[in-house]
């Protein structure tokens, strides 16, 4: 939710990236589906945080290994690559949930509210289609990769293991955009994402 004061307009706030909008995840779905959705959101959040912390630990451990133990961690680079894929693809659906994907909205901003609402339906629908298409092709890519049996040189694990979050991330992102389109169709307000209402008119809420 973007009703928190923006870091820029409130000059006394010194946090670079306030995160209050992502602290409480809520689901747009009712009942059991909502519970599942919430669990997925929780999982994405944990993976994001764990990915970043592991990356820092892994990189530092490599330095310590090199200097104190006289031997580098050979899988360090491979592990970081796995983590960056995890962070990116777990993160895109989490970002979609919170309406954080970067957009440039020159024409959009000039439209009247009703136009913006239907524009948002179109944007969310097209974005969802792209995400599902990419999910499908990345699933195919993983299957091909698994068929070739390529291994990571140091970890000696199949390369396709490192990619499983790619189709999953695209699928979950696609679902978020479908829900966003749906919300904009059935409700009168404009939703940037399932969780984020477009706070138009108040400059400090016009998030990205």
């Amino acid at each position: 939710m973007s009703n928190d004061l923006d870091a820029a307009s409130d000059a006394t706030q010194t946090t670079a990236t306030d995160h209050s909008d992502t602290r409480d995840d809520i689901s747009a779905l009712p009942g059991v589906l909502g519970t599942i959705d919430l669990a997925v959101a929780r999982l994405e959040a944990v993976l994001l945080a764990a990915g970043v912390l592991l990356m820092a630990a892994n990189t530092i451990a490599n330095v310590i290994g090199r200097y104190l133990l006289g031997s580098s961690i050979f899988f360090s680079e491979e592990l970081n690559r796995i983590l960056i894929i995890l962070i990116t693809f777990a993160g895109i659906s989490y970002a979609a949930r919170h309406g954080r994907h970067i957009r440039m909205s020159a024409i959009y901003d000039a439209l009247p509210p009703k136009g913006r609402r239907w524009m948002m339906v179109l944007i969310a629908a097209v974005t969802a289609i792209c995400m599902f298409a990419l999910a499908w092709y990345s699933f195919g890519f993983i299957k091909t990769s698994a068929g070739q049996g390529r291994l990571l040189p140091s970890l000696q694990v199949p390369v396709w293991w490192t990619l499983v979050w790619v189709p999953l991330g695209f699928t979950l992102t696609g679902i978020q955009y479908v829900l966003t389109a749906y919300k904009n169709v059935v409700e009168d307000d404009i939703y940037l994402s399932t969780n984020v209402l477009e706070g138009y008119g108040r400059d400090d809420e016009r998030e990205v």
Partner: peptide, 21 residues
């Protein structure tokens, strides 16, 4: 706080890196 900061870092990274990708 450390957890929240790490999560926020991951989120920003994802938003930028999907564009790099």
């Amino acid at each position: 706080g450390v957890y929240e900061t790490a999560k926020s870092t991951g989120l920003i990274t994802a938003v930028v890196f999907i564009l790099v990708a």
